[in-house]
Design a protein around this nucleic acid. Structure first.
Lengths: 372, 372
DNA sequence: TTGAAAGCGCTAACAA
DNA sequence: TTGTTAGCGCTTTCAA
């Protein structure tokens, strides 16, 4: 741990803005204003504004001069003033979960990139609990800071969130939790993915598939349960009782210890890669082989699990596509409020078959009895 | 994938602010201003401001009335106006890496929490490349948006970044890359951690330790190399050539394949958990046992790797402590610019010994020859 | 194509 | 303890 403090030059102002507010005018090394640029370029402030905002009706000559003057002065547009005058903030806020899992983290990274590519700045507020009160508070603080749009990313609980929102809202991976001027919902394919994972196991010959679910309060959990259920129902497979984890490998491990003695279990679809890893570990510790005795499928697609034994079969969530498409719609809602939303393309469902799945130890015969 | 668009009520304004800017006065359902609160509470706007900013010299009575009026109106302070008038933005910007690794993601989560706990909002800009140009652009955009302080989190390359920065800057996990009004540096203990990991292996009886490093351009890589080197030098151990990865499990796997045939290698310290996992996998595929033939230590402390075979011995980076302490110093620099920085406490070095390390297959005898 | 004037909603300084 | 006045730096309107 190193703490280094560069010598603090006492006559450096804490902030140019502060100094100016105190009374300094644009003299000496003070932070340049648009008036300074205008003066240097020999035009009006409004023309400077026009150039910097790419507005039409500016002569090439004026544009060139303004750009040169701005560059020379090291002029930086004051976003607060612009926001106050125009009502547009140029930023989008995201309410995220604040967990460090591969899934949520990579979703956030893609959101940041998509937002930036769309020309907006990003404000982030985490709500580790994801409950309605937390989300309401987070949205409230975002609105207060000033945002043109809000993204609510994978919130946890259902329940009505009570906030007054005048800007468009994008719900990523969950149904709308509150009303807003305009609401856009973008799923992350959890249902289809869960269904594909379950079907993969069924296709291998397993008579049914157990499901290790996440905490019941999460939307992500519900979606996966439903997908699993749909796959089972479509094949007429019996639906075994749910197994419960909390996304952590430790919880998967605990479930695996309890499950190991139940010889009727031959296939488990876990709602997260990490739970799957914990589950497999416990199973093997108890002497059950994976995939020979029990097949396990994960959920997320973290590439590192291609390098464990056995390499984990899993499904990949299309975070990048979901973030990109969702934000495209959100930005459309922000910038063209009175037009219809464009069509969103469906991201692909991607099943990654590796080594943790195989046919059941001994396929059931026609009567459904198992011949071990 | 579900796209849902709630019916768009045509007479809902796209934004209250916009409407007001167009000419509406505080009438009907327009967004309330501080003047509206003042009127309802029967005080002046300045008193409203005082109450909302927790300034002294307000009577209990006035405070109560203002709060009630604000609540009734659903008043929300306009941060842009406040910023313009006061010069303070109430937000801190972070320049992050935008990779989805466990390390960087969890650092970002802790940064968000610490920033919020300190009463600031967070702006995030990612620079996937982390190079000086990218960092400069990111800082520039943050400054333009308006921030009271900047955090540069684990940048990649050395090199001078050319930006004019009037606010304090916190460098997390790297030395200062540019000059600012005030610079604070907070390491994440990488050197000490790398040293502890290497020493653990040496203590086990290995004559030397190989190091699987990350991309050479990263500061994080350099720090770990230096820690490893220091441990080797302190014991008079021979320093083998560096192995090179890119943080991914795949790169660790590739190195492992090449390394498997070299029987002289008995201990490897990998600069990241995921590379360690890939390395171990390749080693075992080639018939070498871990830890019996080769010991491997990772770096990061992702708990999921306690549930693979063998459970990974690793060191945990004190992200939470580093973020909390670093931001404490940054906030101090922002709020009390003319005082000394407080003392920062050193986060603990934490070695997590699990199953991937053991004494060498057959300890060298006194002469240094190996008796296999 | 350009400019002058008038705010945006808030806080700072000062006076009361 | 409170209110008045005067901006913060920009965009908007409207006229030129």
């Amino acid at each position: 741990m190193v703490i280094q403090l560069t010598s603090f030059d006492a006559d450096v102002r804490p902030s140019g803005d502060f100094m100016a507010a105190v009374g300094g005018r644009s003299e000496g090394s003070a932070v340049p204003r648009s008036a300074d640029v205008a003066r240097l370029a020999g035009v009006s402030r409004k023309t400077v504004s026009r150039v910097l905002n790419n507005e039409p009706y500016v002569s090439e000559e004026a544009r060139t001069k303004v750009l040169a003057a701005a560059e020379e002065l090291g002029y930086r547009l004051n976003q607060a003033a612009r926001t106050l005058a125009s009502g547009r903030t140029g930023s989008i806020g995201v309410v995220a979960l604040g967990t460090v899992g591969y899934g949520t983290a990579s979703l956030l990274v893609h959101v940041e990139r998509a937002v930036r590519d769309a020309g907006y700045a990003l404000r982030v507020v985490n709500t580790p609990d994801g409950d309605p009160a937390g989300i309401a508070g987070a949205v409230e603080s975002l609105l207060e800071q000033g945002v043109d749009g809000v993204i609510v990313s994978e919130p946890i609980v259902e329940g009505d969130v009570s906030v007054r929102v005048d800007v468009p809202v994008l719900f990523l991976g969950a149904p709308p939790a509150f009303n807003a001027t305009r609401t856009v919902t973008m799923g992350v394919g959890a249902h289809e993915l869960a269904r594909a994972a379950t079907e993969h196991l069924l296709d291998l010959g397993h008579t049914t598939v157990h499901h290790l679910a996440g905490p019941r309060r999460w939307y992500a959990t519900k979606d996966r349960i439903e997908g699993w259920r749909a796959a089972l129902a479509a094949r007429g497979a019996h639906e075994p009782p749910l197994l419960n984890g909390d996304w952590s490998a430790a919880s998967g491990h605990a479930v695996g210890e309890a499950l190991a003695s139940d010889r009727s279990v031959t296939a488990v679809f876990a709602a997260g890669d990490e739970m799957a890893i914990g589950l497999i570990h416990a199973l093997r510790e108890a002497g059950r082989r994976v995939p020979e005795d029990i097949s396990v499928v994960g959920f997320d697609g973290n590439p590192v699990f291609a390098y464990v034994s056995p390499p984990l079969t899993t499904v990949r969530q299309p975070f990048e596509a979901a973030a990109r498409e969702g934000i495209r719609l959100l930005v459309h809602a922000i910038e063209k409020p009175h037009t219809d939303l464009p069509q969103a393309s469906d991201p692909p469902v991607e099943l990654i078959v590796r080594g943790s799945t195989a046919p059941p130890p001994s396929p059931p015969d026609k009567t459904g009895r198992r011949t071990t």
